[in-house]
């Protein structure tokens, strides 16, 4: 990776979820809940999988991947019964347990990062904000609704491309770019001060 920007790292770790499961606010909420549940399960099982002769890192990671997938598949299949989720987004809910963000906390813990809990929590707060903001932006601009309710008066014409793949890519790209600009400005400011 070229940049150590935290927001950029988090967006990339959850990229497929951010792209595929943010077409509406409800979908984004479901994606966040499913991802968080998968991450909690993975984090809970991780400490029991200590490295031994038989438990190689590859086997350990395979088990963690399978656990993350099982949780997201089950919850992703239940979600459409609870919330109105578009059919195309269901696949992304079901595979959201396979995204690197799910394994981020366990990887930080295993690597011996001292403040892994704070770091992981920070990453998850950023991820939650990005997913929810993307869902809100894409639904408001792409459909002219919030959580399915019309907000605008008759003259507002939704920009359809925001709910299409084009809009899905534009939002995280803009988030990463803004995060980089912000980090760069911060760097310039602190450089100017010192």
């Amino acid at each position: 990776m070229d940049d150590k920007n935290k927001v950029e790292q988090v967006v990339l770790m959850g990229l497929v979820t951010v792209l595929g499961a943010t077409v509406t606010v409800y979908t984004a909420v479901a994606a966040l809940v499913v991802s968080a549940a998968a991450a909690i399960f993975v984090c809970g099982i991780g400490p029991f999988l200590r490295q031994t002769d038989t438990m190689t890192p590859a086997i350990r990671w395979s088990i963690l991947i399978a656990v993350g997938f099982a949780v997201s598949w089950i919850l992703g299949s239940i979600a459409p019964w609870i919330l109105p989720i578009p059919e195309r987004a269901q696949l992304f809910l079901r595979i959201s347990g396979l995204m690197p963000i799910i394994f981020h906390a366990d990887a930080a813990r295993v690597s011996g990062t001292t403040d892994w809990k704070t770091e992981s929590l920070r990453s998850w707060i950023i991820f939650g904000m990005v997913v929810l903001a993307t869902g809100l932006l894409r639904e408001v601009l792409g459909r002219g609704t919030i959580a399915g309710f019309l907000l605008f008066s008759g003259w507002a014409i939704p920009a359809d491309f925001f709910s299409s793949p084009v809009g899905a890519f534009i939002v995280p790209a803009t988030v990463i770019l803004l995060a980089r600009v912000y980090t760069s400005l911060q760097g310039e400011r602190s450089g100017a001060v010192s």
């Binding site: 991947i65 595979i95 396979l98 690197p100 990887a107």
Partner: peptide, 11 residues
């Protein structure tokens, strides 16, 4: 990012 790249191919 601190985890094996195999995670990238799972999804």
């Amino acid at each position: 990012l601190g985890m094996p790249a195999m995670v990238l191919a799972a999804a």
